[in-house]
Amino acid sequence: MSSADQHAHGTGHHYAHHFESAEHEYSSSKQGIWVFLCTEILMFGGLFVGYAVFHHMYPLLFKAGSTFVDWRMGAANTVVLLTSSLTMALGIYYAQKRDAAKSGLMLLITIACGAIFMVIKYFEYSHKIHLGLLPGSWFHGSLDVTFADGTVQRVENLPLYFSFYYMMTGLHGIHVLIGMSLIFWAWLRVRKNEFGPHYYTPVEGVGLFWHLVDLVWIYLFPLLYLVS
C-alpha cells in the first residue's frame, strides 16, 4: 500500500527514477498491491480453513453458536460495507474524472460507513461480553443452546465458536480500522487536488484494500451468522 506513494513532489506527480513512465509506475504499483492482497487472502484463509475443519469435526457447533448472534446486525453490516465499497469505487471514479470535491465526499462517506460498521460491531461485542460469551477458556456464559426449533441442548465446546467469532471478526475489524485510516490519508491527498485521469494510484490502491476487506466480510456473514 505504501508502495503507492512512491514520489509525489509538490503539485504535479513525478514518477520515481527507476520507472520509464508514470504509466509504468502505475501498473507496477498496482501489481504490488495485488500481490499484497494475495497475502491477505492466505492470512484470512488460515482462519477459514480452521473453520472448515471444525465445521466438519463438530457439525452442530457453528449452528449452535449462530443462535447467539443476531443476523439482522450482520445483515445491516453487510449492507453498510457494500455501500462503502460502492462509494469507494465512486471515489476512484471521480478522482479519474478530476472531480476532487465529489471524490473527497465519496471517500468521507466510505469512512463514515466504516465507522457505522465498527459501531454496530461494538454493540454486538458488548452484548456478548455482557453475557460472558467470550472466546475459549474465558467463556463463562451458559452452554445450553436453544435452537431455532425450540429444542434445548448442551453444547460442551460452544466456546470454540466464540473463539472463531472473535478471531475472524476481530482480525477483520482491525483491517476495517486500518482501511479507514488509509482512506483518510487518500482523502487528504484528494483535497490537495493531486489526482487526475493519469495519476490516482493511491486512491486506487487504498480502494483495492478496502474492497478486500469487504470481500472477507461477504464470506464471514453467512459463515458466522447464517449457519444452518
Binding site: 501489481q31 495485488w34 500481490v35 492482497l37 494475495c38 487472502i41 492466505l42 484463509g45 480453513v49
Partner: peptide
C-alpha cells in the same frame, strides 16, 4: 496473482 492465492488456499 489473485487466482493463485485462491488456488493455494
Amino acid at each position: 496473482i489473485i487466482a493463485s492465492g485462491v488456488f493455494f488456499l
